[in-house]
Write a protein that binds this DNA or RNA. Sequence first.
RNA 1: GGCGCGGUACCCAAGUGGUAAGGGAGAGGUCUGCAAAACCUUUAUGCGCCGGUUCGAUCCCGGCCCGCGCCUCCA
Length: 492
Amino acid sequence: MTLRLFNTLTGQIEALVPADGGALRMYACGPTVYDYGHIGNFRTFLQIDVLRRFLHLTGVPVRHVMNITDVDDKIIRNAAQAAVPIGQYTAQYEQAFFEDFEALRIERPEVLPHATDHIPRMVELVEKLAAAGAAYRTEDGSWYFRLSAFPEYGKLSKKDLSGIADGARVDLDEYEKDSARDFALWKAVKEGETSWDTAIGRGRPGWHLECSAMSMECLGDSFDLHAGGEDLMFPHHENEIAQSETATHKPFVRHWMHVRFLLVDGKKMSKSEGNFFTIRDLLLKGYKASAIRLALISVPYRHQLNFTFQGLTEATSAIDRLRTFRGRLVETVFPPGETAPMQEAAHHARAAYMAALANDLNTAEARAPIFDLVRAANTAIDQGQFSAADSDAILAVLQDFDAIFDVLEDRDDGPTQRALVWAEQVGRLDDVAPELLTRHSLTDEAVETLVAERTQAKLQRDFARADQIRNQLAQQGVVIEDSKDGVRWKRK
RNA sequence: GGCGCGGUACCCAAGUGGUAAGGGAGAGGUCUGCAAAACCUUUAUGCGCCGGUUCGAUCCCGGCCCGCGCCUCCA
């Protein structure tokens, strides 16, 4: 099954296949590690994770490169304020970023280049552009890209910049950019700033240059897919195309994927609006990592996602339903054999699920057949028309579902515990939801003991005692479920 | 102003030229000592408004209203 994915460059939904028949070579613009990542950042990374997981599920090997921008204006400014070297400053946020990555179960890209490790490649690229007459140096020692050298500029974002590109030239005496739209390739050193001494002078790379240099170094002059948030389309990706294609005279990227923004309560997230959330903020409020993951991927990547706390709560309930169902299949002993309706239902669910994903990664549509299957199977089980092979077939479908969504296994405790430890370290315990602190006051063994005592009480028809224990456990976040096959409990 | 996206039930959210997936929430019921879980039933003659094309439009075309994003650092 071939993935059909919208291509920003052509405006069409097109098959995404490796050009050379080997691994699909993809590049995603990664984080600038100057602060904690927010849910908007992670929506983009999660959607890219859905893409790579689907490629894997369909047997397409992937070589995925994501850069770490570890030098830029904000980093230099913040590191100076903290009076530490930028490498020390960025290390803590890079570590935090990957902790959040792991909490959300985002798969690690194959290659994670750091900008500061690839300065020579960037310098080479500037030299190459300068030789071609497409880059020039200003009096202060900065280098700019000459937009007029690349007539196709604007082809990705569909902007017509012809009127601006030919705008008024300024006198050479003013030592300014030749054209207002020309963008910086290399920024000359300023007093006290981190810089590199190179053949093109002392300074540091511009952001756009970093991505061109590292992507081509890791993936070749032309590669299959480049992904990022919609805001990067212009000017960042447009500039990457201009630099790269001017330098190589080859098509830079065949397929461009842009993830639309996440809104919070209908508005773009920003610190000034007060609707700005990091993953850690949500974990401390008591939301589960799996719920965050599901909420952020359930709306297809080409649609705006309006993030709300209610949405997180709904995702939590949806996950509970799936986990409960799977638990039922795993724990129940069904009679041997298979039933035609259930085999058919399983087959149909998988086909519908895969087709929805193959169609431009429609995650919302992909969920539906899975929930249909849950209902059909639960009904069949209740009616005693369900066999062991049906269970196996459905578990296999769930496994494929989880190969993308990855929420069925309850691994939520780890991220929450780590967030609590972090909150203590950085002095944010005041932001922790109270129930989170009491939730884990009971060990599994203690719960088992109480559950056993309650079962005993029930056998003796001492329902008052049994209910008392159940209430006590509920207050500590443990839910009890009685069934024919025994007592189940889970942490809420 | 330029470019682009969206407006579907109480909420979230797919989708199709032939009469509306799924999730959540609510209500009633089955089961249960009672709950929980699970299942069943139920909640849009309707898909922003007005025209047009069509045998037929929520889905195509035009206009209007409303919301949002990008155009500057930004996922």
